[in-house]
Amino acid sequence: MISFIHSFQSEWLKKKGTLAFWLVFVGSFFIPLIFLSRGIFYPKDFLAEAKSPQFWDILTSRSWQFMAILLLPLGVALATSLITQIEFRNNTWKQLNTTPQSLSVIFWSKFAVIIVMLLQFFILFHIGMYLSALIPAIINGSTDFYERSVPFESILKMAGLYFVDCLPIVALQYLVSLQFKNFLVPLSFGIGLLLASLIAVQWKYGYIVPYTYCPYNMFSAKQPQMVPAGVNFHYWAVGYFAGATLLGYFLYLNKKEKG
């Protein structure tokens, strides 16, 4: 366990200043920034919305709506590939694989960094979402806003489900990125599956495509008819996540050349 913590610290340090590091910040604040601007530049709309008792529900579902279809899956695919490809890009697999730690520790610590970055993204996104309402409320002098209590439970539940629905993307991108030196391979794989998921989302067996779960989660609240009936796609997400992670682990351990 100590060895895992040390390895995690090392992996965490590596992402400093990388594109993946900035992607988490920029990506998490992108949608909130749009709503913040809207709240500031269209005060009438904001003040009207603040009067609604469902103010927070509207804001969160609207923010997730833009995120779930494309930005979140794309961002997750990109960030996972970028983090994993750090070693190929810098020719450091050979150094990393000759450090006195088990190959399992290397695999899981790198994976843990990606999961923690995803959590970081979710936290920052929600902070951004809160600020996108708070700042216009202060600027526009909305008194109604302060009467709207934040529905923590439903926000957490929604975030939790989106988080689970992202995990297959993390596991699959991690698996592919560990195997191929050329960054274009995981990138094309991610974009390809993402496009496939956008097409497959209306298909009755669309849940088979592992990148469809974020859009399905969004549809389940607003257009439940879009979601395949009788299928719990969250279970599918967990299944894909577990399967792809274990396969990735097995392939990594059995790589003939380790750098």
Binding site: H6, L13, K16, N90, N91, K94
Partner: peptide, 22 residues
């Protein structure tokens, strides 16, 4: 082994810190 394993986006100190943690 062969060309050095260096994280180009990090400084020399941070490069060494990466390995020092391990």
């Amino acid at each position: 082994i062969e060309s050095p394993s260096i994280y180009g986006h990090l400084t020399a100190i941070n490069n060494l810190k990466v390995w020092q943690k391990i």
